[in-house]
Amino acid sequence: MTAWSEWGIPDKSKLLRLNALFQPVPVADRDSDILMPSKNSQLPTKHLPNAQLSIYSNSGHGLLSFSAPCRSGKQVNAFLDR
Rank of each mutant, 00 (worst) to 15 (best):
L53E: 01
F66K: 10
S13H: 12
K39I: 06
V25N: 02
S67N: 14
L43Q: 05
S65D: 11
R71L: 14
C70F: 10
L64G: 05
H47E: 06
G73S: 06
V27P: 02
L35D: 08
G62H: 12
V27M: 08
P69Y: 06
T45L: 00
L63M: 13
G8E: 11
L43F: 01
G73P: 05
L18S: 06
D31F: 04
V76K: 00
D31C: 06
D29S: 14
Q52W: 01
K46H: 11
K74H: 04
A3T: 14
A3G: 06
F22V: 10
T2G: 08
S67Y: 07
K74P: 00
N19F: 04
W7V: 08
G8D: 13
F66C: 07
L35K: 05
V76F: 14
Q52K: 11
P26V: 02
L48N: 01
H61Y: 07
F79P: 00
K46T: 09
R82C: 08
L21R: 01
L64I: 06
P37M: 05
I34G: 01
L16N: 15
L18Y: 05
R30T: 15
P69K: 14
S59L: 01
D81Y: 05
M1I: 09
D29W: 04
S65I: 13
T45I: 00
S67D: 15
A3L: 15
K74A: 12
N77V: 13
I55S: 08
I9A: 03
I9F: 03
P37H: 11
V25T: 14
G60K: 04
M1R: 14
G62E: 12
S59H: 04
H61M: 06
Q23H: 13
L16W: 03
R17Y: 08
L64Q: 04
L48W: 04
R30D: 12
P37Q: 10
R71D: 14
K74V: 02
I55M: 13
M36S: 10
D31N: 13
F66M: 07
R30G: 15
S65W: 06
L15I: 07
P49S: 09
F66A: 09
S65G: 09
A78E: 15
K39Q: 09
M36G: 02
S41L: 00
P44L: 05
I34M: 11
W7H: 05
I55E: 00
A68I: 02
M36E: 02
V76P: 00
S65L: 14
Q23I: 09
K14N: 10
I34V: 13
T45H: 00
S65Y: 06
G8P: 14
G60W: 02
F79Q: 02
R30I: 03
D31Y: 05
G8K: 09
A28E: 02
K12M: 13
S57P: 11
N40F: 03
A20M: 11
